[in-house]
Every structure is written in C-alpha cells, then in structure tokens.
Design a protein around this nucleic acid. Sequence first.
DNA 1: TTTAAATTTTGATCTGGATCAACTGTTCTG
DNA 2: CAGAACAGTTGATCCAGATCAAAATTTAAA
Lengths: 262, 262
Amino acid sequence: MAPTGVNTPVDIYQVTRNDARQQQEQVATKKMSDSYRKEVRDLALFSDMEPANFDALMRGAYVQNFPPRIELITEGETPDFLHIVISGTVDLFASWNGRETSLATVRPVSTFILAATIKDAPYLMSARTLEKSRIVLLPSEDVRAIFDKDNAFARAIVSELSQCYRAVVKNTKDLKLRTSLERLANYLLRQSQRAGTETFDLNMEKRRLASFLGMTPENLSRAFKGLEPYGVLVSGNHITIKQPETLSGFAKPSPLIDDRMS
Amino acid sequence: MAPTGVNTPVDIYQVTRNDARQQQEQVATKKMSDSYRKEVRDLALFSDMEPANFDALMRGAYVQNFPPRIELITEGETPDFLHIVISGTVDLFASWNGRETSLATVRPVSTFILAATIKDAPYLMSARTLEKSRIVLLPSEDVRAIFDKDNAFARAIVSELSQCYRAVVKNTKDLKLRTSLERLANYLLRQSQRAGTETFDLNMEKRRLASFLGMTPENLSRAFKGLEPYGVLVSGNHITIKQPETLSGFAKPSPLIDDRMS
DNA sequence: TTTAAATTTTGATCTGGATCAACTGTTCTG
DNA sequence: CAGAACAGTTGATCCAGATCAAAATTTAAA
C-alpha cells in the first residue's frame, strides 16, 4: 500500500517547535557581521552582483546556529527567508498523508528554496538540520527587491535555477528508469567519484539514504548485500568499491542521470 | 527487475530519421512571417522584453510543421533551438538501458527545454510529436545573446524556470509519496478541474498515461477498475467522475503536489 | 470494406520490495 | 555505569505491481 522509502513522520526526527526555540536561545540570532560575508559573496549566486546591492542584502541578513534535528521550514508556509547553509547539513523532505520522504541534502556552502523565495509561493519541501548547522537568512523581500533591480543577480538566479531544475529531472529519471539496486549502485559510484577514491564514508544515515533512494531501510540493507557480488564492501558507514569496473558494468551510469554538474 | 512504467524504445513510436526528413519536406521549413508573432509575444516569457530584442529573436526564428511521432530532439544532444509548441502536442521522454519513460507533455502555447538552452548543456530529455504539430524554433545562440542583454527577458526566464522546477518537485513527491492508484486518482481530479466539469476526455493514449504515471499499461487498466468503487466511470477515452467527493476522499489531493500553477 | 497493426483489456503467475517482528549493536542520558 | 532509545540487520510473510500470454477493441492502411 504505502509507497517506497517512506516513514511516518512521528518515528523519526520528531522535535517539537518548543524544543527548537529552547535550544536556539543558547546561540542567539544575530545580525550578520563581516564574518560570513566572504563565504556568501563567493557563491556563484552572489559573486557578480553590484557591491551596493550585495551590501544591502547583507544588511538585512541574519546568521543563526541551529542544533541538530531542528525543523527550519515547513512545507506549505510562505518563504520569509532565503537560506544559506554555511556549515552543517540540511535535509529537504516532504510529507503527504502521514508518509514522508527525503528529497535532497544541502551541504555548505549553498542556498535552498530559491524558487519559492523568488516566486513568493509556498514551500514545497520542509527542511531540517541533520547536525549542528550555521545558516544565513536573507529576508525574502530583500532578495526579491534586489532581484528586481540587479541584472547580474537576476542572471545568476537563472543559472542556479537551471541547475536545480536539471538536478530534479535527473533524479526523476533515476527513480523511474532504475530499480532500487541500480539506484544504490549508481549512488555509490557517484559518491566514490566525488571522494576521488574507491574508499569513502557514507555522509548520511542509512535510514535517510534509503528514503532518499526511494526504498525502506530494510531493503537498503539487503541491497548492500546484493551489491557484494559486484565488489562492494560495507562496514558501518565505510564503503569500499573493490571492483569499480564490475560495479560500473552493473550500474551503467549515464552522464544524463548521474553527472551532478552540467 | 525493470522499474515501473517503462517501455522498450523499439516497440513504440519508432520513426526513423529518414521518415522524418521525408515528411518534413512536404511542409517546408520557413522563416517566420508575422503569422505566429503574436502568439509567441503573448507568452509570459516574451511579453515584457524590449520590442527591438523581440524582433531580433523573431528574425532568426523558423516555423516548422511536423507530422505525428517525429523525434524532435534526442537526449544527450546539444541544444540548437529553443522550441515553442504553437499547435499539436509534444511528449518529453527519457531512456536508459533499453527502458523508456514519459516525463511530461507539452501543449500549446508553451516552450520546452529552456534550461538546456540557457545553460548550453545537453538535453536531459528527448521530445517527439504526438500529433501533427507546429513548432517555432529559436536558435539557442540568439536566445542566449538576448538573455544577456535584455533584463526583462532574463527575469521572465527566472519566472518560467521557477515554475518548471516546482512542477518537477511536485511530480517527484507524487511519485515517492503515493501509490499508483493514488496517482491515477489525483491525475483524474486534476484533469477534471482543468476541464471544469466532471466529464472529460483523456488527452493522451492510456499507454502513455501509464508511462507518465509510472506504471504499466496493464496496471493502469486495472487501476481504472480499482477506482470504480469511488465513482469513476471509464469508457474509452471518456471519463466521468460520478462522485467527486468520494474520489477526493480517497485521493486526498494537496495543493503542494497537485496545484499545477503556483 | 477488409486486412492488418496497434492499443486496450483480462487472466494467470511471478517478483521486487514493503511490512511485521525479533534481535544486535550503538549512542545518548540520567 | 546501567538502562533506555534508536539505528541497523535478519528472517518470515505479504502485497503491489511487473511480466507473460492471449483475447477483445480500436485504429490505420490497403
């Protein structure tokens, strides 16, 4: 009945709003000093815009430290801020009818929910921190105002959105054209390539990897077993691809699905 | 083994390039006169741009009539043109490892493969006409050149890409959070809403609808049966939703998945 | 109109992957 | 440090949906 890779929201990462508020107070929200200016400015999204406009954007910005497992935004709400992950990890997920699925992981340094911010339309995904994270918050109204007057910024947004769009299309192809075993095999090859070695650590819990790949944790566990014949060695988070060609022969990676850039 | 809603490419719509070329010659490619200017200009994507820039774009434009089942573009190729469907229907699909799946249907008047054109990156999807179609072709280089100098155009592209991005995200949620029966139920409700009546015709073959919804034709057939208890009457292409509330109670449509605008 | 070809439907069977349950190992926490 | 949560694994069972085969329609072509 229930589709693949879905958890009831109550059995995982359940942190109440109150908990969140409590913990946030430990590290106060503050106006952004120069501390993270450079990191933000270096993002392709902001690097070409007018200095004056960048300054204006930064004047309204906040930096906030969040503890793990805090829900930052909730799907359906209206975007108050464009978020930028400076450190830590953020999980984008969605729920429907008591089911939940992981859609993406955001790592430093990058933004999320740009499309909702620009269109001033409700979030389609919720976001939660996975670990202690530092987030820059840019008021949506400021972002839209500067989008309206800064042409370089508008063009950078085009570039960013194209990238995001293409990433989601690739993900859809992965989901519709491959079995779960194939998805896992290709995921491992991508991670291996990213690491530049045949040995690497999974950078998220298996539970969430399962949800991301559209399967249950039990099945992911079996899928890892199923890749043993292709030379995949698993020990906790630690993965070794002993026979990359063999695995590749099974996974048949394609740049039109698996190249995370372009 | 094979994932859901997939066909081998050879068993459907197999039209060779030669066939295409032969038939195209029946209706010659031509430089675009004023005939379709207005339709193109009325698209949100082009309506705000500088008249001079729009003219420049139109000077390089072609209109072409295609017979049904012609492959217009092939995934992996580099975008030569931004396409605009003036009449007819275009299917966007993708293949991997001998499997194929339908990703979207483009209807008049709208563009497709904007992201690839702007980024000058390989197509992620192939496109084929489903019926006799009239397509306007704008050379990609022209589009990029004018994107670089026309600020209103750049902003319109942001709006269009946001829309596309959000549509794909919604589709992913549909796929990952719902069973095939739920997807069909919600699809019918959307179509009904679009038509404004409880009675409407499916606007594509069931075979392709199945692929689009991520299931096999056999299963779609059974799914229609499975919706009878919720007051869905099917006769060929003709659908009647006899008890919209009952169906809605089962389908549980959500604006964050099913609202095609916003 | 009469074949021919393709789509759709129906039935029977199979299988990938979900669910349920029990157990192990890990990491918080009092 | 002991106990409680929780992540991960393993086994047994179940089910949604794929596959295979064939009949019934529909569409297209001669």
